[in-house]
Structure formats: C-alpha cells, structure tokens
C-alpha cells in the first residue's frame, strides 16, 4: 500500500513543521511608516551626497570623487528593495558592465559603475560629466518617486531577504565594485537595510518565534563582528581584496542563512 511505503520511511515523520497562522490583528502600520521615514532619509541623503560627487567630477578632482564614491552609494544600497521597484532607474543608476553585451564599451552603461570605471580604470574624470549629470537627475527623480509611493507591505517585509539575496548574488564574490574594490561598503549598507526592516517588524513576531529571533539576531551580530575587522579609522572599509577566505566563507554562510530565515518573515507576518 502507498501508506505502508510512506510509513516505512522516515520522511513523513520528521519533515513536517507547523505552519504559522497569520494573525490578522498584527499591526503593520507603525513599522511601515517608520520604514518609510528611513527610506526617505536615505534617498534625501543620496541626493545630497550625489551632488557633492558630481561637483568633484566636474571640478576634475579624481581623488575627491574617488573618496566620495563608496559613501554616496551606501544610501542607495540600504534601500535597494524599494529603489528597485523603479526598474528603469535601477538600471541607469546601478547596472554593472556585465549587464551589457558590450560591457564597458556599451553606450547604455551609465550610473555609479560607469563613473567608477572612469575614476579607477581610466583614472580620469574626462567624459564623466555626462554620466554625473545623468546620475544626479536619476537619483533626484528616484527621491521624488519614492516619496510619492505607497509602500506595499509585502515588498517592505520581503526586502529584508531581498537584500541578503543581493549580497549572496553579487557582493560576496566581489563583482559589484570591481574597479574600486569598495564592496565592503555596499555589503555593510545591504546588511543595515535588511536589519532595519527586520528590527522594525521583530516585535510583531517575537512572541511565538523565540528561536527564530535569537538565530537571526545572532547572525546579524556575527556579520557585524566580521565586518568590524575591516573598518578603517575614518569609518570606512578596506579593499575587498583584503577579505580573507575564511571570513568570506563565514559571511557567505551567514548571508545564506539570513536569506533562508528572512524569507519566512512575510509568511510569519501573514503577508502571502
């Protein structure tokens, strides 16, 4: 009998986990509006910082522009799940050369990474004015659009895991900031963005999920500890090239585990 077949295996007994029932009384409104403020602060900062970056480029000051590149990006990286909702802007602001068939030579290649390419590979601001103006216009547009946006709760909550997917897919391998090697800045910003979402919604799930909360808290803390080793005295980060294999492995495991766990956050909050 099929029943015998199933019973004769261990799978039926040990696989099962209880499904969490959504609690309709959970109040998402508070954390959602707090998150909206967080995003608005970041996009406003992004505009301010981009203005300074653009000014340095136009002044032909390569060193200054280089020093502003990584910190400017962090406000974008922190709110990427929301910024990505506007895919036209995400592409023109943050696409990488390998998103294009002709790579760096592709005319459609614009945004942060085109500027990064110019500053680090071509070691010059020449020809970057165009991209600088476009970047500023794009981030200003983004700021305006985000302020007018009603945040879909499942996107906000899902964003915690999306940021971990970002790290797992492009940051951990050092592909994101390949010319400047400033990946650890992005890394940190992605984690901050994810942790922000998680922390805002944690009070709503804490009660029934003590193990889960302890595990996620522990993993965020472990990531902080690893990244702290790579801090520079001025609050920045050393080059991605200095990340040791064993720390990379540790970060990978934490990122993947956070991605797995945070992927259940929507379900835990009853957002299908």
């Amino acid at each position: 009998m099929i029943a015998t077949f199933l019973r004769s295996t261990a799978l039926g007994l040990t696989f099962a986990g209880a499904a969490w029932a959504a609690d309709p009384s959970l109040d998402l409104v508070g954390p959602l509006s707090d998150y909206k403020i967080f995003v608005a602060e970041n996009t406003a900062q992004l505009v301010t910082d981009t203005e300074a970056l653009v000014a340095a480029i136009k002044a032909g000051d390569v060193e200054k522009a280089k020093s502003l590149f990584a910190p400017t990006r962090t406000s974008y990286e922190r709110v990427e799940p929301i910024a990505e909702l506007f895919s036209d802007l995400d592409v023109s602001i943050d696409a990488r050369a390998d998103d294009y068939e002709k790579a760096e030579k592709d005319e459609a290649f614009t945004g942060f990474h085109r500027i990064e390419y110019g500053l680090w590979e071509e070691k010059s601001t020449e020809g970057l004015d165009l991209y600088a103006d476009k970047l500023l216009a794009d981030v200003t547009d983004l700021d305006g659009r985000i302020n007018a946006l009603t945040f879909p709760p499942e996107v906000v909550v899902g964003g915690a895991a999306v940021l971990m997917e970002e790290v797992a897919a492009t940051k951990i391998s050092g592909e994101e900031d390949r010319y400047s090697r400033t990946d650890l800045w992005d890394f940190k910003a992605n984690f901050e963005g994810s942790e922000k979402i998680y922390t805002l919604f944690r009070p709503l799930i804490e009660a029934g999920n003590a193990d889960f909360v302890a595990k996620v808290d522990g993993n965020f803390k472990a990531v902080d500890e690893v990244l702290a080793k790579y801090r520079t005295p001025d609050g920045g980060f050393v080059s991605y090239d200095e990340l040791t294999d064993s720390d990379r492995t540790m970060l990978s495991a934490k990122v993947n585990t956070l991605a797995e766990d945070l992927a259940t956050l929507r379900g835990k909050l009853g957002l299908g």
């Binding site: 261990a10 799978l11 696989f15 099962a16 499904a19 029932a21 299908g272």
Partner: peptide, 23 residues
C-alpha cells in the same frame, strides 16, 4: 545525517503554509 537519511529513503514532502517558502 538527517537529510541524507530522508533523501535516500524517500517519502512525502510536508505541506507548509503557502505564505512560507515550500519545504
């Protein structure tokens, strides 16, 4: 060990709440 035992011996996949990633 648990995973290897389950996978090599076979059996049904548990149903979870559809708002969660499947098991």
């Amino acid at each position: 060990t648990d995973r290897a035992r389950l996978l090599t011996q076979g059996g049904p996949v548990p149903d979870l709440d559809p708002s969660l990633p499947p098991a």
